[in-house]
Design a protein around this nucleic acid. Structure first.
Lengths: 126, 126
DNA sequence: CCTACTGTATCGCTACACCAATACAGTTGG
DNA sequence: CCAACTGTATTGGTGTAGCGATACAGTAGG
């Protein structure tokens, strides 16, 4: 689950770690209540500083994905069924809006953007 | 054309400036061959350092929007018809890829993103 | 209980982005 | 020519992100 974490990547280490956890949760590999590796365990395993793992876990906590309990560990949070999906959908909307705004800023017509989207997502017939 | 440049904005000054020029070119307000304000003129007008304006102009030059000629000035570049469109399409692809990468990073499935895109762009039947 | 595990808090270093200051070099028009 | 304009190059200051080091505090199982 944490293979391929790369210190030389432009995306920060803590961000890579948090990302792995998020997709694992989204994919159901990590169930609610399940513990994440301890800060020190993961830090040792990835050969980096515990504080970096903490930063990753804290970000996840801020987003409501996990709960950190001092002395006990860090655990995937229980959430109502639709709640998580709703926040994800909201996030998705923000991403799309940001992209549209950026496109407008540099003068790219919506149609051209649409074609690029189709290209990248694969032009499934629908 | 340069109203509302804001030093307190999270987007850098040089980026704001370059952005204004890009939209002006895309909108046809700045025609090929036409000069941009000189580095010092614009810097004085916006009450900031010439080097900052240079940074903006240089970014535009890198993207092929303008040409800086020492001693003469900075001018909107002539480009072949399809050339600009090609670079725009390329830019569009990069934008879409960045959005997809970000979505993946936070665990948003492609399908969910697709729905958000349809929502924002309007679900035209096609 | 108390040891060995959890997370917490604080500090500092390093790299880089952003912006300013200042001296340099080319162009152009009277 | 040469003065007054252009862009160029180098340097430095300031803030902040990323990461590490280390001491602190809570929890839980034998």
């Amino acid at each position: 689950m944490f293979d391929g974490i790369d210190p030389r990547s432009p995306t920060p280490l803590y961000d890579q770690i948090a990302g792995r956890v998020r997709v694992a949760i989204a994919a159901g590999e990590l169930r609610p209540g399940e513990p994440l590796p301890s800060v020190r365990q993961l830090a040792t395993r990835l050969r980096l500083n515990p504080a970096t793992v903490v930063q990753a876990y804290r970000a996840l906590e801020t987003d409501g994905f996990v709960e950190m309990r001092q002395g006990a560990g860090t655990f995937v949070r229980e959430v109502e069924a639709g709640r998580r999906a709703a926040t994800r959908a909201d996030h998705a909307r923000r991403l799309v809006r940001a992209m549209l705004a950026e496109a407008a800023r540099v003068g790219i017509p919506a149609q051209e953007l649409q074609r690029a989207i189709d290209d990248e997502l694969g032009v499934e017939v629908r």
